[in-house]
Amino acid sequence: MRRPRLLELTLKNLFRKPATIEYPRKKTPVESDYRGLQYADLTKCTGCSICALECPANAIAMTPIPQGYEAPKTNPRRLYPLINYGKCVFCYRCVTVCPFNAYITTPKYDLANAEKTINSSPLSLSTLRKG
C-alpha cells in the first residue's frame, strides 16, 4: 500500500498565498452575466405589473413614481416595480417575463450598505429625468 504524499501537499501549502478572499477589502470575482441586482428601466416600463404577479418570492411591489420625475407617456398609471432585495431570490423571473424587456441586469452582488432599506428605487429612479 503506497501512501499518497499528503505531507508534501501540506508543506507546499505553507508557502502558498491563502485561498481566502478578504471580502470586502477585495471583491470576489464574478462573471459579467452573474445574476446580481436587477432593476427596471423606467423609460421602458409601462407599469403593467406582470413581474409583480409572477414573482415567486413576492418581492416586487408596484409603487407610484414620486412627484418630480417625468414618467413616460406609456406609463399612464405612473407605477413602477419596487424590488425589495431582502426578499428577492434573484431568479430573474421578472427579467424574463417582462413584455417590454424593461429590466436592466447587473452582476452586482453586495447588498450590505449603510442605508436602512435595500430596494431598487434609487437604481430605477436614476433612469428617469427629473422634471
Binding site: 409572477e54 414573482c55 415567486p56 418570492a57 431570490v89 431568479c91 423571473r93
Partner: peptide
C-alpha cells in the same frame, strides 16, 4: 405552476 419551479428549487 411557474412560481413553483423556483419554490421547489429552494
Amino acid at each position: 405552476f411557474y412560481k413553483d419551479i423556483f419554490i421547489v428549487g429552494r
